[in-house]
Amino acid sequence: MSSETRSTSWFSKVWPPAVTFAGFIGVWYAYSGLKYDIAARRINTLPFPHEVIRDGFLPLWDSKNGLRPILGYLWPTLKVTIVGLAVSVVLGVLIAVLMNLSKSTERAIFPYAVVLQTVPILAITPLLTQLFGEEFGVRLVVVVLIAIFPVITNTLFGLQSADRLHHDLFTLNRANRVTRLLKLELPGAMPAMMTGVRIASGGAVIGAVVADFFFTRGEKGIGFYIRVKQQRAAERPEMFAGTIMASLFGIVMFLIIGFVSTRAIRNWHESASTRT
């Protein structure tokens, strides 16, 4: 492919989402303007996009408003997300390996993994507070509860999808269970596991933000900022800015994990060479 065709295809990739974005901003302006006319007190309704930028982001280095407090509140969220995701990956892979040992260990664990996934976090927050308090620990638990399931299921699927002929090859060479796991099943499960981690990273961000809505002690994260800024009408632009930054944070996490996983398996996995 020449660089010329690549640059035109780059342009043709960028303009459709750009048009969508422009349309979205247009609708936003229209809606805010409409409310302004009718209520004549626009401050209670949706702020204009430029107000979000001016009041929510632009006081770049003010200690109360704008980008600086947002970044300050994002930091604890980032910590909880990263640590929670790491714990989910380690624990999730261990659990998947355990389930892969035999049909009975799989049967012993699987229902509870499903329960973990289906129990609404909201319904168990009081219980979680009882057990883990209201600080870093409980936030971590919320993140892990949300993020671990996709790691378990995808890794397990990867472990179990090892080729039958590859297993025969290992059987012929008298490989024991551990060798089979380390040299066949785990490397083979890498792509599926990475898919699980990518899904988990989205869940981890949600967990970290949502935890701030329920747990009020310890280092407060971006969820707390959003919630507080929602309470005063004059501070709605700040709330929007917080929401936007939390979303950006989620997207960046997703992209980073995606990039890392593609690098990790790029040499051999088919989907790594056809994706991106």
């Binding site: 002929l165 025969d168 066949l184 490397p187 083979g188 890498m190 398996i265 040499n267 051999w268 996995h269």
Partner: peptide, 15 residues
Amino acid sequence: SIGYVFQDPTLLPWR
């Protein structure tokens, strides 16, 4: 002491 060449190459893609 068996060598067995399968009908498919059965190479491990990550090696």
